[in-house]
Design a protein around this nucleic acid. Sequence first.
DNA 1: TTTCTGACACTAG
DNA 2: CCTAGTGCCAGAA
Length: 115
Amino acid sequence: MATGTAGPLRQQALDEGLPLSERVLACVDLIPPGRVMSYKDVSEFVFGHPRSPRRVARVLSRDSVGSGVPWWRVIRADGSCATPVRSEQLRRLAEEGVPIRNEHVVMAAARWDGR
DNA sequence: TTTCTGACACTAG
DNA sequence: CCTAGTGCCAGAA
């Protein structure tokens, strides 16, 4: 199909006029079930460069839990999970079929780049 | 303004 | 696998 539709969330994630948290959360909302993105990947998607994974992490720690977005689909680049939520995150990911080995998500198989 | 700290990333050892 | 050191960005003290 012609797919001219960028998708409201996708558009929101790229809109530089919106607040940082809204853009990051919009991006996280785009991640399909069973797939994941690293903080660095989100930085690349939202900011256009991979240099601000910590800005992404800060937004997640502040506004993600309870916001309704699938925060558990954002993990470290090496496939491990952030310390504060590691346990619940691994449980949720395993629940939706994300391949995990030794407490690490198999990035090669579950990583989502936004396509 | 300097320093510390954090749901990060990467390289060395 | 683990610890250090460095780079990174931003908020808090």
